[in-house]
Design a protein around this nucleic acid. Sequence first.
RNA 1: GCCGAAGUGGCGGAACAGGCAGACGCGCACGACUCAAAAUCGUGUACCCUCGGGUAUGUGGGUUCGAUUCCCACCUUCGGCACCA
Length: 844
Amino acid sequence: MGQDKLPLKIKNRWLPKDPATKTGVKMIDPTAIPMYKPEEIEPKWQARWEADGIYHAQTDPDKPKHYALTMFAYPSGDLHIGHWYAMTPPDARARFKRMQGYNVFFPYGHDAFGLPAENAAIKRKIHPKTWTYSNIERMRKQLRSMGNSFDWRSELTTSDPEYYRWTQWWFLQFLKNDLAYQKMSPVDFCPSCNTTLAREQVHGEDRHCERCETPVIRKDLKQWFFRTSNYAEELLHYDELDWPEHVKTLQKKWIGRSQGAAVIFRTEAGDPIEVFTTRPDTLWGVTFMVLSPEHPLVEKIVTPAQLDQVRAYQEQAKRQSDIQRESVTREKTGVFTGGYAVNPVSSEHIPIWVADYVLMSYGTGAIMAVPGHDQRDFEFARQFNLPVKVVIHPEGTDLPLPEEMTEAVEAHGSMVNSGPLTGTPEAETFDAAVRYVEELGVGKATTNYRLHDWLISRQRYWGAPIPIVYCPNCGAVPVPEDQLPVLLPDDVEWLPTGESPLKLHPTWRFTTCPVCGGEAERETDTMDTFMCSSWYHLRYLSPHYTEGPFDPEQFRYWMPVDTYTGGIEHATMHLIYTRFFHKAARDCGIVTGNEPMLQLRNQGMVLGEDGEKMSKSRGNVINPDDLVERYGADTVRAYLIFFCRWELGGPWSSTGIEGNSRWLRRVWHAILEPYAGKADEDTLKALRRKAHQTLKRVTYDYENFEFNTIVSSLMELLNEMQRAKNAGAYGSQAWDETVDLYLRMLAPVCPHIAEELWEKLGKPYSIHLQPWPEVDEEAAKDELITLIIQVNGKLRDRIEVEPGISEEEAKKLALASEQAQAALEGRPIRKVIVVPGRLVNIVG
RNA sequence: GCCGAAGUGGCGGAACAGGCAGACGCGCACGACUCAAAAUCGUGUACCCUCGGGUAUGUGGGUUCGAUUCCCACCUUCGGCACCA
């Protein structure tokens, strides 16, 4: 280094153009300045940092810890600009925290199991394992080019047997503690991916697969579930968490708590039909019941006369999920079963219908229909000429006649036409109705949740095998822990047939029963990959630990995660699963604490230059490797941090990044090119003031994820430095102090150039291990402030005053302003508002 | 339909707690350097204007001495949910 000379033609850059401002400044030998060559300094420092292990986190009870975690990515093969955007600002913050004296742990790994590997395998005839691991190899290199301060010693890959051994172990712990169970149930099945999906992986009104958008179908399969819904209530509590409101709202909606009552109706034959209602106060308004087409009782109550119709309807409903549903305002459909139920409060006999607007997956799959006070029931009643009753009278309204109603009255009100509860005032209806059914022994208050148990079985190859053996004598037997991992065989036909590929393996599935030693077969389904990502933050702590999923000593020091960052798309999936997982693990006695991640922040998305989502088909994809080659990683980092608010994201601009490239070159030259001259005291004071004001601002911004203004503040400071330098500040104490602060503030954003300049100035290696500087409040203080003078809220004048100016003095100065007086046009002054140190508003 | 986020110059964005709207950057214009171009440096850059000022933060109201910021209604864009009983 230091060999490259500047071409002579740019020797007079930075020289003031106006002779009057020259103040005798003379540049000393500009040709001695090496050029800024990121392509040379970046790999050099990356190698050095890694060799020296400066980002290795070491447990140190005397130091405050900071576990900064960024969501690991699926190794799809190429590092996308989105990965840079997700990882670079958190890296800058982790670096800032490190300089602040925290013992920072910032790990990285690969979420390597999953469908794309299998799909690629099918398409290109490459083994999923080969594909995945070569992608990982490639991404490792790309990840290193970012210059992130990852602690690579903790790198993990979820498809390594060393990792999934413990994924299987967790499954066994949950099984042992009755948090995992197997049941036959209608599940969502993607006919294109040939596997079942968790409820969360089914999207949209047409209920399509999140990955391939094929509408899912219902299948009755015996599958494994986790008891996520046991934690529905606890998951609604966020007191310990500093999470974005938006994410909490999404989760709360997803969990879907609703309070109401469970009420048992009976068929005329005496079979119970339990329903859930949020409106027990409308019990006397029930005029029919509706069962979901899949409801088991349908078989029993359907009369021979109605059988054909009901069967046909059930068949059609089953196909429904196959069919793209047309519109939101679908007409209600349904069929009468021929059976009748008895209303437990009124003893009225009411018809039982089957309709697909009642979902088997919510509540009990059966409802009491109150067309007078529920819009859906109302529409159904009108469709099939069923009676409507009015039993609630909202205050201040006229009681409508059922035959004249055009919509249901959903408002609350006092009870009418409700037997012994008639006349109950609005405020008491819910409690009175619940008490009434409780006394009759036909119901009770309950809370219902939308959240389902988590279906974790997948009929795919590239995942962690579920460690279960089926024995004809002993049933489903867990594989003993000392026999883990249940290894995924390599020689498998992974073509999707709708069956688990492992089932087609000639030998793998055959084994012996761990209990009786007899012939048995392995479970051939694998686990949902969200299972792998629910606990990776724990494995990072000790990725090669063999005594358990993590080293408890490491856990005690590092957990919980202090800062977790990633995309919003995981709000109702990964982020619910991992919270559930931690709570379940806590209840198994394996971990302590209630929450795994204390602080959560989400980044937005980098869009293409056209403002649209980046996609290959649109041709608007930005490739980070090309950018690094052209500008260097520091410029790419700076641009990503600068160009928009991190949580919002925004469109990429290929001219915008030029600005950041220029900025770093200016930083380079401003600091390295010497000037002769002597600046006056005021210039130096102003320089220090700006430096410390910037430090104050930048410190706040790093702490609060306000990344874009970090870069703009540093740009402002550079502009000030340039002015001071032109005025002869170079080489002064104030200059040296400012440069020192500048590099420390720059280091988290642009680690390479900061390190290089730091070294060139003869400062001790490494800048990334230097302490974060303290703000000199005295130096940061403004000498003069601009006092704003308004008349009737409009700016009329501004005057320079001492910051400590008294209200009286400010008022006097304002009233003395000619501009203000002119604006008053002789009107009398009614009021004067003085905001100390800011403005005076004269109202006249 | 319900829930959430966001609307500020030609563009990306700034404005910590209701007090100078447009920091910083891009782009553009002009100038310097150059034979010339690029690069670099400098200056300017919301709109209107009768040059005094006036108008501007999606639209319309409101609160306030004062609103990009708070409240109400609406419009647009993006995201989530999808008959949840």
